[in-house]
Design a protein around this nucleic acid. Structure first.
Lengths: 122, 122
DNA sequence: TTATTGTACAACTAAGTAGTTGAGTACAGG
DNA sequence: CCTGTACTCAACTACTTAGTTGTACAATAA
């Protein structure tokens, strides 16, 4: 609801790369150019530019234009959307916790399985 | 700290696939076998088994053994670790929020850029 | 024992991705 | 204009991944 067109595939995928996560962390300190983002890494500018494109496509980052430079900055909503998904999901899990609780603790035998018929071999 | 050896790459990567997210949601209702998890999808059991392997490698899911069946169930800590990372990150962003606030709101003009000298055109 | 069920393993294909080099675009300043 | 700077685009390589089919295995049922 908060983020109408959040692409979870792209967003999760973008954060599945350590270089991109580092770039995102770097951008949390403020906007940066491609060259600045590339500095900590042993990568060509083109590679970093590609990573930025991935982050941009995922909606996590936006680009500006400043003369020859194209500084990147974080884009809040997508990040919020991701967090929201995870929190929602965890809340969702908590709902069915009567069952799940036992499982996650140490008894490996659920009282009555939900939507589908898991028949334990008697 | 909470999750010593959480593999963020694997965890984010695992959730970047809609099929796997659906499986995870399904598992939030309780454990399920490969066959049950496969039902909603137009996929072979082998494919679903592979997806489960990905989720397992990422620490999001654990497998049990019940006769021929190998029911899968959610594994709390990894999910918690992911959420934690995102929340930590967002908190981190909030620290430098004097700058970022302006950017993420609607004035596209930060008062004084941080580590790098980004001069906005004009 | 044999048959059946549920799942895994192996090999393959098609597609995607991270990285490279090389060329090209866009702007600033002489 | 030409030069340097900052970056993108295009083409290619190496690797990974999602899916397939076919086979094999493990546990129960007959």
């Amino acid at each position: 609801m908060t983020t109408a067109t959040l692409d979870l595939d792209a967003a999760f995928g973008a954060l599945s790369d350590p270089t991109r996560r580092a770039m995102v962390v770097r951008l949390a300190h403020g906007p940066a150019t491609v060259g600045e983002l590339a500095e900590p890494f042993d990568l060509t500018l083109q590679a970093v530019s590609k990573h930025l494109a991935v982050l941009t496509r995922a909606g996590l980052v936006e680009r500006d234009r400043d003369a020859q430079r194209r500084p990147a900055r974080l884009c809040g909503p997508a990040l919020a959307g991701l967090t929201e998904w995870l929190l929602d999901f965890r809340a969702h899990v908590a709902e069915g916790y009567e069952r799940l609780d036992a499982l996650l603790a140490d008894d490996p035998r659920p009282p009555s399985p939900p939507t589908s018929q898991i028949r334990r071999s008697r």
